[in-house]
């Protein structure tokens, strides 16, 4: 590998080192995610006032929007890992890409369901084939396609390569989801929170939203690392380091 890559990053490409690193980081990420989520729930459900138009129904925003952000963020992370895996044949990158897909699918599913539950009282319909909703549904199908393709090969690494290609092709959908509310006339509202320029939201509602965003990011790290560990145990089961773990964690025998 090129010598500008720092040594620690190079070392993380080794499955046993990544396995141990993930095992150390995972509980911290999960604990911080739960703390942040509790703070966000308190802020969003208790402290924040009701919306002047939507009443208390708007509180769905505190899970709907962070989930929607994660559905796109995880797709981006998956595509980057897939690209690295395809170009440099780094096994960890392939595993990270493949194990990101179920988490992304979970957040996309949550986004669609909570959006539906928000749409019914506010728009008067559970579902409409408008640009934002349809492109988010396509995102779910892309995730499911990646998961399905990965598992349809006898050889896991071959499956990972095929599914990585699909993940890279599907990246075109990410800007479509993001800009759909600007490009087309849709029922879905435009962006409320902006990175550039002022957000159209009160501070008392903004901070729980951003805290929940942080919680979902941390949760992604925790879930991803648990998944990568489970995946490595399966794919590296012929290696000595996995056998040592299997013997050390013997829960079956008294």
């Amino acid at each position: 590998m090129a010598n500008w890559v720092p040594l620690w990053l190079h070392k993380l490409g080794s499955p046993p080192i990544f396995y141990r690193f993930a095992g150390v980081v995972r509980p911290w990420a999960l604990a911080l995610a739960i703390l942040a989520a509790l703070a966000a729930l308190y802020g969003g459900l208790v402290l924040a006032p009701a919306d002047y138009q939507q009443g208390d129904a708007y509180r769905i925003i505190f899970i709907h929007v962070p989930s929607a952000w994660m559905s796109l963020f995880i797709y981006g992370a998956m595509a980057v890992a897939a690209f690295v895996g395809l170009v440099w044949r780094i096994k960890i990158a392939e595993v990270v890409a493949m194990e990101s897909a179920p988490i992304g699918a979970a957040f996309t599913f949550i986004t669609l369901v909570t959006g539906s539950l928000w749409g019914k009282p506010m728009w008067g319909t559970w579902w409409t084939w408008d640009a934002r909703l349809t492109s988010e549904l396509v995102l779910l199908f892309l995730y499911l396609g990646v998961i399905g393709l990965y598992h349809s090969f006898e050889d896991r690494r071959q499956g990972a390569r095929a599914a990585s290609f699909l993940a890279l092709i599907g990246i075109v959908n990410v800007p479509i989801v993001h800009f759909s509310v600007n490009w087309w006339n849709t029922l879905h509202q435009g962006s409320t929170v902006r990175i550039l320029g002022p957000s159209h939201i009160e501070m008392s509602m903004l901070w729980p939203l951003l805290t929940m965003m942080l919680a979902t990011k941390l949760y992604y790290i925790a879930s991803l690392f648990a998944r990568v560990r489970a995946d490595l145990i399966a794919t590296e089961s012929g290696k000595d380091w996995v056998r040592a773990i299997a013997l050390a964690e013997n829960g079956d025998r008294p």
């Binding site: 989930s67 179920p102 979970a106 539950l117």
Partner: peptide, 29 residues
């Protein structure tokens, strides 16, 4: 609408969090 949304959020993520732990133990066994 509000409580079902929050329930879906937490139930889906709980299943997502438990699945790899179960899978890892099964693979080791």
């Amino acid at each position: 609408y509000v409580w079902v949304s929050f329930a879906v959020f937490f139930i889906v993520l709980l299943v997502d969090a438990l699945a790899p732990l179960v899978r890892r133990r099964r693979n080791l066994r």
